[in-house]
Computed example of a mutant assay.
Amino acid sequence: MAQRLAARSRPERANLYQDITDRIIADLEAGRVPWVQPWGTANAGVGMPHNAISNRRYSGINVLTLWHAVASRGFSSHAFLTFRQAAALGGTVRRGERGVGIIYTHRFVPTAERQRADQEGRATAGGIPFLKHFTVFSVDQCDGLPEHICQPAPPIPEGLILPQADELIAATGADFRIGGPSAYYSPAQDYVAVPRPDDFHDPINWHRTAFHELGHWTGHKTRLDRDQTGRFGSKEYGREELVAEMAGAFVCAALGIVPSVRHADYIGSWLEIIREDNRAILRAASAASKAADFILSHGRTSDLDANGARNDEQVEPDETGRLAA
Rank of each mutant, 00 (worst) to 15 (best):
M1Y: 05
R4P: 04
R4D: 14
L5P: 10
A6F: 07
A7C: 11
A7S: 13
A14I: 10
L16T: 14
Y17R: 14
T21M: 04
R23N: 03
D27T: 10
G31V: 05
V36P: 02
P38W: 02
P38V: 08
P38N: 08
P38R: 05
G40S: 10
M48T: 04
R57G: 09
Y58A: 10
Y58F: 12
I61C: 02
V63A: 00
V63G: 04
V63C: 04
L64H: 06
T65I: 06
A71M: 06
S72L: 07
S72C: 12
F75I: 05
S77I: 05
H78V: 07
A79S: 08
A79K: 11
R84Y: 11
R84M: 08
Q85N: 07
A86F: 03
A87L: 10
A88Q: 14
R95V: 13
R98C: 09
V100A: 11
F108K: 01
T111F: 11
R114L: 10
Q115N: 11
R116H: 08
R122P: 04
I128S: 09
P129H: 06
K132P: 06
T135E: 06
D140Q: 00
D140E: 10
Q141F: 06
G144P: 04
Q151W: 12
P154V: 11
P155R: 11
I161T: 05
I161R: 02
I161V: 15
P163A: 12
Q164C: 01
E167K: 03
L168A: 00
A170C: 02
T172W: 00
G173A: 02
A174R: 01
A174N: 01
D175H: 06
P181N: 15
A183G: 14
Y185E: 05
S186L: 10
S186W: 14
P187T: 13
D190F: 13
D190H: 03
D190T: 13
H201R: 15
H201W: 11
D202V: 10
I204S: 12
W206K: 00
R208T: 13
T209V: 05
F211S: 02
H212P: 11
E213C: 05
T218M: 01
G219V: 05
G219N: 03
H220P: 11
K221E: 08
T222Q: 15
R223G: 01
L224P: 06
D225R: 14
R226D: 09
R231S: 14
G233L: 03
G233D: 06
S234R: 04
K235I: 08
E236S: 10
V243Y: 01
M246K: 01
M246Q: 07
A249E: 08
V251A: 11
L255V: 09
G256C: 12
P259K: 00
V261E: 07
A264H: 07
A264Y: 11
S269R: 12
E272I: 06
R275V: 08
I281D: 10
L282C: 09
A288S: 15
A291S: 15
D293H: 15
F294G: 09
H298Q: 06
R300F: 03
S302R: 04
S302L: 09
D303T: 15
N311D: 12
E313Y: 04
E316H: 14
E316M: 15
E316C: 14
R322C: 08
R322L: 14
R322M: 12
R322I: 13
A325C: 10
